[in-house]
Design a protein around this nucleic acid. Structure first.
Lengths: 111, 111
DNA sequence: CTGGTCAACATAGTTAACCTAGTTGGCTGG
DNA sequence: CCAGCCAACTAGGTTAACTATGTTGACCAG
């Protein structure tokens, strides 16, 4: 499942889950699959799944309850405060720049 | 250094660093101590320090440069642009991501 | 039926090890 | 002198293993 792009796996998984939550595919109050299931589903190790879930937890999108599971928060902040969104955009820009630089390097090598 | 409170160590370290940054004790542009130094300084393992730094990185407080160090951002809180422009930017970013992903996929296939 | 135990499964935190990749500075061979 | 190599140090990503703790359901003795 995890693509062979420059973007690290734990970010890809976090992106995917975030998208599903924001898109309503994972409704508020519903539990995410367990970390073990997610690991198998994405073809990743437990650790990267835990890192991805930790990100969402840190963003407040999701709440983990020991022994039960990880649940989508009811009050999903639909629009993160402008500064947060700006920060996210900057991160995305940096990611794109790095990946583009690598692609350009490979292209010039084979030219 | 890490207290015996309920708060996990990686959050304590992140809090402490965040405080130093916001308080000016770590000025913009200056590098943080290396992860190894931080680990010794806080009496924690490398992993928890990496997690703490990762948090700050995710928050945009700090920028890591491979091979050099982790630097405090000279963060000028920019005036939030109109939401319309924000939406447009997001669409552009999504488009760029998709196109870049295709290029990367072709490169990895033909390699 | 009731209460207790126990096994299975869940998140969460921590540590250690290994790998990639970028940077820097010093040393050496020409 | 100096160009190039190399060792040391840096951040970042991934994986595995272990501990702690909470939840749940099955099972059994009383």
């Amino acid at each position: 499942m995890v693509k062979h792009t420059g973007r690290p796996g734990y970010l890809q998984i976090a992106d995917n889950l975030r998208e599903k939550i924001r898109g309503g595919s994972l409704a508020p109050g519903t539990p995410l699959p367990s970390t073990a299931q997610l690991a198998e589903q994405y073809g990743a190790s437990l650790s990267v799944v835990k890192m991805a879930v930790g990100l969402l937890r840190n963003e407040g999108l999701v709440i983990g309850q020991q022994g039960k599971g990880v649940f989508v928060r009811d009050d999903v902040p639909p629009a993160p405060p402008p500064t947060d969104e700006l920060a996210e955009i900057r991160l995305t820009l940096r990611d794109l720049s790095e990946r583009l630089a690598k692609v350009e390097a490979q292209l010039s090598d084979r030219r």
